[in-house]
Design a protein around this nucleic acid. Structure first.
Length: 233
DNA sequence: GTCCACTCAGTAAAGCACAT
DNA sequence: ATGTGCTTTACTGAGTGGAC
């Protein structure tokens, strides 16, 4: 209990009103925006990472309390600590962290929170396991769970497992959210760095229905002539 | 020799402004 | 509506140099 209060107080002390204002706009916390209602203390990520080292031994109960916070950076801290713990954990502890993560996805509710953790915890856990759960996440009504699913494949790509990026991108082709188009395009581009033929096969198949943003992100690393070709088809 | 801190270049995210 | 490129922030890896 004291620990939780101590951590939250530490973060409050580190906050900066100007940065908070900027973050609030950047992460779209206004009415009707994707981060509606989120509150910011105004702390830069490297500073959060320093605090994560300081509080790295926090147990899951503590991290759960931190994730409950209305303050964005308090949730970010919890996810950074959790991700660092996962990297160093034994297989059974990894199982626990993975389960904990999936049980708290309602608190992982902005793109930076997803992007700092999903590939490490979800990707790290599933890279050598059955990946069925990803397809449940990709089918979620939650924008963030869908983003978690795609972000997880970043770890697969680095392990040269490219299949799930393709399958998830196909499932998410008709997604309405720009943040999903961007994420899918990003992962397709990363996948293309490993196997450009597979990327082109995907593009040839879906060029007519792909969201424009997904396409533009995906082709970013192709030679200019090929990029032009895909954009004008 | 090892470790840590630092700098630098390259790359990435999202948002955004501007041109077409 | 679409394409391009800029801005801000952050991470990574390589290289450097000092402390021990």
């Amino acid at each position: 209990m004291d620990t939780i209060k101590e951590i939250i107080q530490t973060l409050h002390n580190a906050g900066d009103a100007e940065i908070a204002k900027h973050s609030s706009r950047f992460f779209k916390s206004g009415p009707g925006e994707y981060g509606e209602g989120d509150k910011f203390l105004g702390i830069r990520v490297p500073v959060i990472r320093q605090f994560a080292k300081q509080f790295k031994c926090s147990d899951l109960e503590t991290l759960s309390a931190l994730l409950d916070s209305d303050w964005h950076e308090v949730r970010l801290l919890a996810l950074v600590i959790l991700s660092e713990q996962f990297k160093k954990a034994s297989p059974p502890v990894r199982d626990d962290i993975f389960a904990f993560y999936l049980a708290h996805t309602d608190r992982i509710n902005n793109w930076d929170l997803v992007d700092c953790s999903a590939h490490i915890i979800v990707g790290g856990h599933l890279v050598e396991a059955d990946k069925t759960i990803l397809y449940t996440l990709a089918d979620s009504i939650s924008l963030w769970e869908r983003r978690i699913a795609m972000m997880a494949t970043f770890t697969f790509i680095r392990a040269n497992q490219l299949e799930d990026t393709i399958k998830l991108a196909e499932l998410l082709l008709k997604d309405k959210e720009d943040l999903i188009h961007k994420m899918c395009g990003w992962m397709l581009r990363e996948m293309g760095k490993r196997d450009v033929q597979r990327l082109k096969a995907f593009l040839d198949k879906h060029i007519q229905t792909m969201p424009r943003t997904m396409l533009r992100y995906a082709i970013e690393k192709l030679p200019k002539e090929e990029r032009q070709d895909y954009l004008t088809r």
